[in-house]
Amino acid sequence: MSEVKEVKILEKPWVEKYRPEKLNDIVGQEHIVKRLTHYVKTSSMPHLLFAGPPGVGKTTAALCLAKEIYGEHWRQNFLELNASDERGINVIREKVKEFARTKPIGGASFKIIFLDESDALTQDAQQALRRTMEMFSNNVRFILSCNYSSKIIEPIQSRCAIFRFRPLNDEDVAKRLRYIAENEGLELTEDGLQALLYVAEGDMRRAINVLQAAAALDTKITDENVFIVASRARPEDVREMMVLALEGNFLKARDKLREILLKQGLSGEDVLIQMHKEVFNLPISEPKKVKLADKIGEYNFRLVEGAHEMIQLEALLAQFTLLGK
């Protein structure tokens, strides 16, 4: 007999492992949770449009809503499609209509179709969706999730109750990160926590992913580990580079730039984004901050257009030196 090999079961990503199961477990969106809970209690709801930045709970809210409405039958009554992958009219004509035609299971009065990243749907697909929403409104409710509601055509917006998700504040993200670190047996230092919050910028998904990546390096989560796995420069290094340029030490600022780019492996656009974030923390006058922010925007456009990273960033530092005089 051949030897049976043991198959190692991979652990879920922490984003999925620690995804809330109930609406009341969702943090930072209390006004939305309250409205969705009302739909659960009344077993009645309109079509919904979730709009907001990434990682703030849009997908989680849709999943929790389905679980609380349908209980153990939620998988049979809930269809999730990622519209950025399946964005054509055929998806609406085939998958959505096929699911919408069948009756709900478990005594529910309607099914739910969740279209994630629906702002990636083509105009033709959105027009087809508009008609489908009308035809199957007795049997199906749609939840559309998007980053930019302006990319959803007006006829669809008018058919939906719009929920605007806001970026999570640092207190809510920190509370969740401490909970995960405790459950995973990690030592989360205060510097490490602040680094995670700096990198996350209100995005819970990004914060949890970076925490998991940092935990692969060491069970002690420090700011150094966080910036390494997140491919970010330390804020103080970026500020030091800009201050050197403003003080007229162009060559030292240039050396600092090369250290950030080459040793830490950052892209030019990554550095520009951090420079834009840190320019408002510099000890300079308001008019100078305005001029520097304007210059950063100009050089960001140059990089987007395909200009050479190192040349453009050094030219930007030269502008800092000129403006610092």
Score class of each variant (00 low, 15 high):
284 I>N: 03
260 I>D: 00
237 D>Q: 04
270 D>Y: 06
251 L>F: 14
272 L>S: 05
281 N>P: 03
268 G>N: 02
278 E>K: 01
258 R>D: 14
236 E>V: 07
272 L>N: 00
260 I>W: 04
255 D>T: 13
255 D>R: 15
273 I>D: 05
238 V>M: 00
284 I>V: 13
263 K>L: 11
262 L>A: 14
243 V>E: 09
274 Q>W: 06
269 E>H: 10
235 P>S: 03
270 D>I: 05
255 D>N: 14
252 K>S: 15
275 M>I: 07
264 Q>M: 11
257 L>I: 11
264 Q>K: 15
245 A>Q: 09
274 Q>E: 09
265 G>K: 09
283 P>H: 10
239 R>K: 07
259 E>D: 14
258 R>E: 14
270 D>E: 13
243 V>D: 03
268 G>W: 00
259 E>F: 10
250 F>P: 00
279 V>I: 11
250 F>W: 15
273 I>Q: 07
270 D>N: 11
252 K>D: 15
255 D>V: 13
236 E>M: 12
250 F>N: 06
274 Q>K: 06
268 G>F: 02
269 E>Y: 14
267 S>F: 04
242 M>L: 06
255 D>E: 15
239 R>D: 03
252 K>W: 11
233 A>T: 04
258 R>H: 15
244 L>T: 04
284 I>T: 08
233 A>H: 01
247 E>M: 01
250 F>A: 06
236 E>S: 04
270 D>A: 12
275 M>P: 05
244 L>E: 09
270 D>W: 04
280 F>N: 08
247 E>L: 14
262 L>S: 15
259 E>N: 09
235 P>F: 02
252 K>M: 09
240 E>V: 05
266 L>Q: 05
269 E>L: 11
234 R>I: 13
274 Q>P: 02
261 L>Q: 03
284 I>L: 02
259 E>Q: 13
274 Q>F: 10
235 P>L: 05
254 R>A: 14
259 E>S: 09
243 V>Q: 02
285 S>F: 07
242 M>G: 04
253 A>V: 07
251 L>I: 15
277 K>S: 10
237 D>S: 07
282 L>V: 10
284 I>K: 02
233 A>R: 00
241 M>P: 06
234 R>D: 14
278 E>H: 02
284 I>G: 01
275 M>R: 00
265 G>V: 11
243 V>H: 03
249 N>Y: 05
262 L>C: 09
273 I>K: 10
282 L>A: 08
267 S>V: 07
247 E>K: 11
261 L>K: 07
254 R>K: 13
273 I>S: 07
272 L>R: 00
241 M>H: 02
246 L>E: 04
266 L>K: 01
276 H>Q: 13
250 F>D: 08
284 I>S: 02
250 F>Q: 11
250 F>I: 12
267 S>L: 03
276 H>W: 11
260 I>S: 02
276 H>N: 12
252 K>C: 09
270 D>K: 10
281 N>Y: 12
247 E>S: 12
282 L>Y: 08
268 G>L: 08
255 D>M: 11
272 L>Y: 04
284 I>P: 00
235 P>V: 04
237 D>R: 03
237 D>G: 00
262 L>P: 08
285 S>Y: 13
246 L>H: 06
271 V>L: 07
